[in-house]
Amino acid sequence: MIGCQDFCGHYDWTFAYLQREYGEEALRDYWEQAIARDSQAHARALIAAKGFQGMAEYWGHTLAEEEAGYVATAGANYYRVDMHRCPSLGFLLERGQQQFADYCEHCIGWIGPLMADYGFAIDHAHNHRGQCWWEFRRASEAGAPSAPGEVAGPKDVRLRQDWESGPIDRYLRSRRE
C-alpha cells in the first residue's frame, strides 16, 4: 500500500516520473487537473464560497494537520502565509530524497490555477530551503506585495537572516519574475 506517512517522497518521485516519461506539459497538467481540481476539491470549495475566510479555513486545517511551522495573517483584502518550516520539503531534505529538480514549484503549480479560477492574484517567493511566503489579493485590486514586515511584522519570513542565503524564485501577480 502507498501510505500518507511518506506521501511527500512518492509525490516528489511522481513529478520526476511525469516529467521524464511525458514531459513538462503533462506535469503542469497533473498539478492543475489532478491536484487543483480533484485532490484539493475541498480547498476549491472553501475558497469559492468564502474567499479569504475560505483560505484561512483551508490552510488552517491543512498546515495544522501537516505540523507546519507557519504564520498566517489576514486582512480585509488579503490573506498572507509566512512558512518558516515547510513540512513537505523538510521531509525530503531530512532524507536527502529529492528526485525532482524543484519540489517547491508544485505549490504554485496547483494553487496558481485554483486562485486564478476565483479571481485572486498571488505574490509569492520560495527559497528552496523550506521557507516561503504567499500573499493573495483579488486580481482586480492587486498591486505590489507588502514590504518585509509590513503585514506579518517580525514573523515575516523575509526578515530571517537565512532567507536570502541561496536562490529564490519569485512570482508577482501570479507570474514568475
Binding site: 502507498i2 501510505g3 500518507c4 506517512q5 506521501f7 511527500c8 509525490y11 511522481t14 511525458y22 503533462a26 497533473y30 487537473q33 489532478a34 491536484i35 480533484d38 485532490s39 484539493q40 476539491a41 475541498h42 491543512t62 494537520e65 501537516e66 505540523e67 513540512p87 513537505s88 521531509f91
Partner: peptide
C-alpha cells in the same frame, strides 16, 4: 507527517494516469 488528506492526492494521481494513459 501522516496527514490523511494526502489520500485525496494519491487517489487523484491514480485517476489522472488512468484517464490520460489508460
Amino acid at each position: 507527517m501522516a496527514a490523511p488528506d494526502f489520500y485525496f492526492a494519491i487517489n487523484a494521481t491514480f485517476r489522472f494516469f488512468y484517464e490520460r494513459w489508460g
